[in-house]
Design a binder for these strands. Structure first.
Lengths: 160, 160
DNA sequence: TATTGTTATACTCTATAACTATA
DNA sequence: TATAGTTATAGAGTATAACAATA
């Protein structure tokens, strides 16, 4: 296991919680953007495909999941559909609306991105001892969960 | 101190390090985007102003800091300059290049965003006991620092 | 009347390629 | 020749407002 640089990073003074989390979020987002980009996907397209892995929402519901206006969803789905990553199926119960579904190609693509992303994040986190990694996982979960709770959002379950 | 919801969030199974950090990064970025948006700033504009708080880079150097092509920087600086947030000063040593500087208005704006952002992040992190918050700060610093080191980037100092 | 989704429009952000002026 | 910056162009992503079809 040879790292890009062999000399260990010099001990840095603590960035503080706010700067630390901000910079960490940029690091994670950059990694995601870079990896997604290798498959000609944007972060938003990737998020959408991720959502569609275990849901078949209407355009409207998809907009809520992504926090985007319905007019933005139209274009987003258009472009993904043009690439054969998702499909629109007319709803059987409401003739105004569509069910958005991921295709096999789309699923395969997002799985690849997810796998490579996981690899990258695991690597970023290697400098931490295993105990800390476990702690970090718990803390991130706690923060994210509390926030979702504050906003009345169901997080990981599959409410379709 | 009354939270939006009074019942505590139900104990959630751990999201895992990768999902946890991914979701945390979305949470942080959303917060930043929302707060910046209240001042009609995008995340990128805010990052730029943040960089310019303690630097006066050339267009080129600014591009490196932001990881963007020089052609993207032109427009970015154009729009900020049009709003009176930054200025372009011809370099005295190289007649091809400019020094980009933040204006008082720009500094005031970014300080406000930074303050509100800090407040928000502190709030998000409240569910963690103080010991964990300290730990989290250290861990985030560690990860970010190691990554910067891997990429040969100077992180927090002021190399101008 | 209200809701679902699309369209028209406008703006930011981004990159590639071609260009100008300077080094 | 090489570098700093701009321009032209193209495309994604975003929102607001107006619209059509359906509820």
């Amino acid at each position: 296991m040879t790292s890009p640089h062999d000399t260990p990073p010099p001990p840095t003074e603590d960035l503080g919680l706010v700067d630390g989390l901000a910079q960490l979020s940029f690091l994670v987002q950059s990694a995601l953007a870079e990896i997604a980009g290798q498959y000609d996907l944007s972060v938003v397209q990737t998020r959408m495909l991720g959502i569609l892995r275990d849901r078949e929402p209407t355009m409207n519901q998809l907009g809520h999941h992504l926090g985007l206006d319905k007019s933005s969803i139209t274009g987003l789905v258009d472009r993904a559909q043009r690439r054969g990553l998702v499909t629109r199926t007319p709803s059987t119960v409401d003739r105004r609306s569509f069910q958005v579904s991921i295709t096999d190609a789309g699923r395969q693509l997002v799985e690849q991105v997810a796998a490579q992303f996981a690899e990258r994040i695991e690597r970023c986190v290697e400098p931490l001892p295993a105990t800390d990694r476990k702690r970090l996982s718990r803390m991130a979960t706690r923060i994210v969960t509390a926030d979702a709770h504050d906003h009345g959002i169901d997080l990981r379950t599959d409410p379709r």
